[in-house]
Every structure is written in C-alpha cells, then in structure tokens.
Amino acid sequence: MLALAHPTPFLRRLAGLVVALGVAWLQPAPAQAGDTETAAACGKPVYLTFDTGHMGVAPLIADVLRREQVRVTFFAANEPTRTGGASMDDAWAPWWKARAAEGHEFASHTFDHVYWRGDIAGGAQASFKVRPSAGARAGQQFTMTAAQYCGEIRKSEDRLREMTGKEPLPLFRAPGGKTSERLLAAARSCGYAHVGWAAAGFLGDELPSDRFPNQRLLEQALKNIRSGDILLAHLGIWSRQDPWAPAVLEPLIKGLKERGFCFRTLREHPDYAQWTRKR
C-alpha cells in the first residue's frame, strides 16, 4: 500500500477498509460439511465400494452416504433395473451426476456385466470365453479377444464420463471377481488395474437372506473388518428377499466409525496409487 504524507480522515478509513478486506481474502474458506473427516488424518481407512444391480435401493444408499458424509467408489455396468430400463440409461443419468457432485469416484464393471468363463489356449493374441448377464447377448457364451474385453471396460468408462462429467478411475472390477492372470495382464496392457475385495469386506448382500439374515451380516462385518479392507456391496440384488442396504448400511457405517475407522475412495488406496495418479 502507498503511504500518504497527510491522509485525510476519509483516506484513513478507506485504507483501513482495504487492509480489512485484504485480511479477509487471506482467511481460509469456511469448512463445508464433511470437510473435517476428509482432511483429518486417517489411521484406519476402509474403502467402501458398490457394484451396480437392479438399482432399487440406489436412492436409499445415496441418502445414507450423504447423511454420514461418506464417499465411496462405484463400479458400474449397464444392468437391468426394476423399472425396466438399465442402470446407465438416460433415466439414471441424473442420479450418477448427483453422486459425482458429492465427491464419489467411479470405475468400470464392464458395460454388459461380462463374466470371464475361461482362457482360450493358443493364438498370438489372448482371448477368453465370456458370458454377459446384460445387453443383447445376455446369457450367451462366446469368445472375446483381449482388445474386445478392453473395449467392454472402456465402454462403461465412457458412459460414466458422459453422465457424471467426471473422469473415472483407470480401474475395473470383473463381474463376480472372476479373472485369470491372462485377463488381468490384458486389462493392464490397456491401462486398467483390477480391484477385488477383502474376505471380511464381502458384506453378504448377495447371499440368501433366510440363511444369512441382515443382523448376522452386520455383526460379522463389525467384528471382522480391518484397516485397509476394500468392502463390497451392490445397488440392488434380485435374489435376496430381505434387502441388505435398508437394514445394514447405516448401522455398519456408524459402527465402523465408532470403532475408529474412516472411509476413503479408491483414489486414495495405496495399492492403486500408480494408476489413480493418471486421472
């Protein structure tokens, strides 16, 4: 600021205002909801992930995550929904975009939810037996080359980018977690690392509810989950009669927080740092 030899009262008040504004500009912005947990040191991280499904519980899951200020990683495929559409169609695009605005991360689950069924021996290029559970060839077994399988990963990634306006992580999860060394090598060659889950992180929402009731699954998870675990659940499972998410998700998050755990996305997972730095 320039010094004035003989400042008038008006100029002195003006100078004081400029100084005050300057100090205000240097102050940090007010913390937003959830910033404290995000910025705090995380000594016991867990990584909650959701794969797509029939989407019937997707709004409920989003509400719980918002209330608890928990950010997760979604693995998306274009699976059939209860409303007769698909999980990545235009009707669901606003839901995905809203999750991006909340700070969640996204990655591919292959577009047509393509299950690996086996490697095909021989040939100059890797190829695989596959069976999608969605799309025009759902339920059919056929062969995909490595390039075609990479195209399946990329197709989901492209759709996520289109819906959310956010760059997906260069990660993928094979449906059912079914892979081979050749499949993983093929995916790595086109830029994708595979993400599985911890044994204790299998939250059981795919299991029959008559033999694995929700309270049992909740108690088991709270007892066995450890720091660093990747946790797996879904946005709706067709076969489970007593849905998991309405009964278990919020008590699980609260219970883990009470035990000193904190939630992080896979962008922050040390095992995938070399991949997530690319995005």
Rank of each mutant, 00 (worst) to 15 (best):
I225V: 11
P132M: 02
S127P: 01
F212K: 06
K97A: 15
Y115D: 02
F106R: 11
V64F: 03
W92G: 01
I120S: 01
A20V: 02
Q69V: 09
G196P: 11
D35C: 03
A200N: 11
C262N: 15
H234R: 05
H234G: 04
P30I: 08
G85S: 07
S189G: 10
A126V: 00
L203E: 11
D112T: 12
L48Y: 14
G103P: 05
G135Y: 00
L48F: 12
L222C: 03
R99K: 15
F172M: 10
F172I: 04
E105A: 15
L203V: 14
G34A: 00
I153N: 05
H6L: 12
T49H: 10
F10A: 08
E258M: 08
Y47Q: 03
V114C: 04
L2T: 07
T110L: 09
S227D: 05
G204V: 08
L21C: 14
G123D: 07
A3D: 00
S239D: 08
R259H: 04
T49A: 12
V64I: 02
K223T: 15
L222T: 01
G56C: 01
L48I: 13
S108I: 03
L183E: 05
D112V: 01
L184C: 10
A101M: 06
G236K: 02
H104G: 03
D90N: 03
R131W: 00
A20R: 02
P59G: 13
A187Y: 12
G103H: 10
G260K: 13
S180T: 07
T265L: 06
C150P: 08
H234I: 06
G196E: 11
P246T: 00
Y192I: 02
E79H: 12
I153M: 06
I153A: 06
A100H: 09
V64P: 02
F261V: 05
D271S: 15
H6M: 07
T164V: 01
G204W: 03
L232D: 04
T179K: 13
F75Q: 06
R240H: 05
A62S: 15
R188E: 15
I237Q: 14
R71T: 11
L235G: 12
L48P: 15
T36C: 02
W275M: 14
G123V: 05
E157S: 11
R71E: 13
P59H: 12
A273P: 02
Q215A: 14
R279Q: 15
V57N: 13
R13Q: 12
K278G: 12
Y272A: 09
V19K: 02
T8D: 00
